[in-house]
Amino acid sequence: MTQHKNWLLFKVYLFAGTFTFSGGMAMLPVIERELCVKHQLIERQTLYEYTTLSQTFPGVIALTNACFIGKKINGTSGMLAAGFGAILPAFVLMSAATGLYQSLPQQGVILSILAAIRAASAAFLFSAAYSLARYNLRDVTTILLAVGCFLLTLFNLVSAPLLIIAAGVVGILTTLFKTGAKS
């Protein structure tokens, strides 16, 4: 029975991983249908609770989510089965794609196509920054944090890891300050 559960967890997360593009939890409804409705292995509320929680920890969010749900349903072996399922499609497909990419001759018309694709790639990053900004820049503190990190990284004044740690500390301090002000 527990092996059956592991196999199911592996299959569900493998499927979710194969059809989720650019990260994110777009496949959550499928996971919910399989694990909560069809097989009734976990409460819907628990699934959503741990999905939200996954987003607050460091690491790969989709993998953290798979590990939480896998461990909740079937202990450590469930965690490994779900986690393995979550990363396997990305690894296999990306590895094949990188192999193909490496075999492309970087000249002539192909170079011209790649140059345009690289320009599109930069556009994706601007777009990602915009959507992140829309949801996360709400007050003076968050705007200052974003602008500060932008300038300090652009001119190579402070390294990104250091900025991330500093931003985490600012986050803790503002939370403390807010709860202090309330009480």
Binding site: T56, A129, T153
Partner: peptide
Amino acid sequence: NSIISGIKPASVGLILAVA
């Protein structure tokens, strides 16, 4: 949650700098 509330806005600046 409080850590992430600081890092999310910071990551806007970081990714914009890369862009």
